[in-house]
């Protein structure tokens, strides 16, 4: 046997005769459409860009910090507004006597003395709380009422800012707070939905469980649901063969 024929012998396909293989080669090598190539490659790129490394980063600590910041802001606003919120309860009107107390007699150091004298105090802080808010605070902390009287007296002396803006502010603040909390809630909710979707996807790790579900649906006569489950099965396990009993069931007219 010559080396050439030995080589030919070695290259021979024991499963497909040479003549058939030659005819197959002559039939040419068809190629997919260019658009399809692009679509597949774009899909492949998009799949990895939207999942793997970027995702944990974007949903990692910045997301947590944002959530925490919104919560802290919300709680701070809530605490500040609690003093000013009208209609929390319906306390009796403030005693007229407090208005007659001479300012000098009751002017005790204010409760927020820890703030340095040089530090500019925001105008909003100096504004008088509403009587209702005072009453609520007195219920919580009677010791603070003296300071409260003093502050109220300051405001009387200043003939403080008109009532309307002071009333509008809490309403506006409350709305902002509600919006912030709602936004935060929506963010948390959507993150939760995504998390649940990811979890349910990862739960589909056992093909036998899905196959059992398909069988159960077929037995129950729920063919549409069974077909849907089959589609899910194919998506999750494209390389898994369909057992003969199921293949027969779906092939049957």
């Amino acid at each position: 046997m010559s080396p050439t024929s030995r080589k030919h012998e070695k290259n021979r396909d024991p499963l497909v005769p040479d003549e058939v293989r030659a005819a197959w080669r002559e039939a040419g090598a068809p190629e997919p459409a260019e658009l399809v190539d692009r679509a597949v490659l774009n899909r492949a790129r998009a799949a990895v860009e939207s999942s793997t490394p970027g995702r944990p980063w974007s949903f990692g600590w910045p997301h947590t910090v944002t959530t925490a910041a919104v919560l802290v802001l919300g709680v701070t606003l809530l605490l500040q507004l609690r003093d000013q919120a009208p209609g929390v309860s319906q306390p009796p009107p403030p005693a007229p006597a407090s208005r007659t107390v001479p300012a000098d007699a009751v002017r005790t150091p204010p409760a927020r003395d820890s703030v340095s004298a040089d530090e500019p105090v925001p105008d909003r802080m100096l504004r008088a709380p509403t009587p209702e808010a005072e009453a609520v605070r007195d219920e919580i902390d009677p010791a603070a009422s003296a300071a409260g009287i003093s502050r109220r007296q300051d405001v009387i002396e200043q003939d403080a800012a008109p009532a309307a803006p002071a009333e509008q502010q809490p309403a506006q603040g409350t709305r902002l707070l509600e919006e912030a909390l709602l936004k935060n809630e929506i963010e948390i909710e959507s993150a939760d939905v995504e998390h649940r979707a990811r979890r349910s996807q990862s739960e589909e790790t056992d093909p036998e469980r899905l196959l059992a579900e398909i069988r159960r649906l077929l037995d129950a006569g729920e063919f549409e649901d069974a077909r849907e489950a089959l589609a899910r099965f194919r998506l999750a396990f494209p390389d898994h063969p369909l057992p003969e009993d199921l293949a027969t069931a779906f092939d049957a007219p």
Binding site: A27, A29, P30, E31, P32, A33, V36, A39, V40, R43, A44, A47, R234, L235, A236, F237, P238, D239
Partner: peptide, 28 residues
Amino acid sequence: FGYFLRHVSDEATANDLYQGCWEKVIAA
């Protein structure tokens, strides 16, 4: 692509099948 085209003998169908197959590969 040859595998699909030689099966179905229709280019449009073969392109659909081919694309769908790669999408499954990507998903899996």
